[in-house]
């Protein structure tokens, strides 16, 4: 009964917050409500037996996306107050209602059907080199997806570099933020490292650890403790490219000498996965931090 109350409240709050985000009268209010929505989503996923995703969503979905949106507000054109929502009220509502009905009818039977895949993952888990199934899927069974994902992050960053903006004037950090930042950033570092290390046997891993590290870097940068991060510095380049390089090197070596592209030899499973995870964590942390607070280089008119 209590559990149903909790689930029902979470579901209702999620829907109300989503509507509030869309209908909020100010742009700033909309962004702040969206951050709250992200945190609530993380809570819901933790409730649904997905602590890995809750961690990632809290750090990435709510934290980094929130900072990105707030940063973009500074550049954006102001919104005319009368212009929040525009025409097409009934057509939009009609299309949405019809789609909702169709989609709910489509997903309804999904809750009952079964899947052979989880059982297969569990039987193969012994041979994968790690004991946490999500990490096993990410870095062994579906390693190809993860490699491509690292490439997507890298391309997003390279794309971002092509669009240079005049740098924003940095204001003095707010005293409370400066004081808390010194406390929070080392904690983010420790927890990020811990998540990476735990990832082989428990919820955690490269993405969650990397996202937390990135959050720590962003806090430090906003406080002015870290110097500006820029692509021109060679350690930054090395860090950004490390994950993809190590991953591709492992893939090429297994292709040339082993059983095939990204099929690890059984004896080497664990060290290879840990090596890839460490490199990927560093790259993800640095790239995400650069996406959020990377210094736009000087604009030459």
């Amino acid at each position: 009964m209590i559990e149903w109350l909790l689930d029902g409240t979470l579901a209702a709050l999620l829907l109300i917050l989503a509507i509030a985000v869309i209908r909020a009268s100010g742009l700033y209010a909309s962004v702040v409500l969206f951050i709250a929505f992200g945190l609530l989503l993380a809570l819901t996923w933790a409730r649904l037996g997905a602590p890995d995703l809750a961690l990632a969503e809290a750090a990435i979905g709510a934290g980094l996306t929130g900072v990105l949106l707030l940063g973009a507000l500074a550049h954006a054109r102001p919104e005319r107050p009368s212009n929040t929502l525009y025409g097409y009220r009934w057509p939009a509502a009609l299309v949405s209602m019809a789609l909702a009905a169709l989609l709910i009818r489509a997903v309804w039977p999904l809750a009952e059907t079964t899947q052979p895949l989880p059982a297969q993952v569990m039987t193969e888990l012994e041979a994968s080199g790690v004991s946490h199934p999500v990490t096993a899927v990410l870095l062994n069974f579906r390693a190809w997806d993860t490699l491509l994902e690292l490439l997507v992050v890298l391309f997003a960053f390279l794309g971002l570099r092509q669009l240079r903006l005049a740098p924003l004037a940095h204001t003095e950090p707010w005293p409370l933020l400066a004081a808390w930042g010194r406390l929070l950033a080392p904690l983010a570092l420790v927890i990020g490292g811990y998540l990476l290390w735990r990832g082989t046997s428990a919820p955690g891993g490269a993405f969650q650890g990397g996202a937390l590290l990135a959050a720590g870097l962003v806090v430090l940068r906003l406080n002015g403790v870290l110097p500006a991060l820029s692509w021109r510095q060679w350690p930054v380049r090395l860090g950004v490219l490390l994950g993809v390089t190590v991953f591709l090197a492992v893939a090429a070596l297994t292709h040339a000498f082993g059983a095939g592209w990204l099929t690890y030899p059984v004896a080497w499973n664990t060290p290879l996965i840990v090596a890839i995870e460490v490199a990927a964590t560093l790259s993800i942390a640095l790239t995400l931090a650069l996406l959020v607070v990377g210094e736009p280089e000087e604009v030459h008119p």
């Binding site: 979905g61 997806d145 997507v152 960053f157 993800i284 996406l291």
Partner: peptide, 13 residues
């Protein structure tokens, strides 16, 4: 769950 982790990172990028 692994697919969603991948999706989250792609979405933020």
């Amino acid at each position: 769950q692994a697919l969603v982790v991948t999706g989250l990172v792609v979405a933020v990028s």
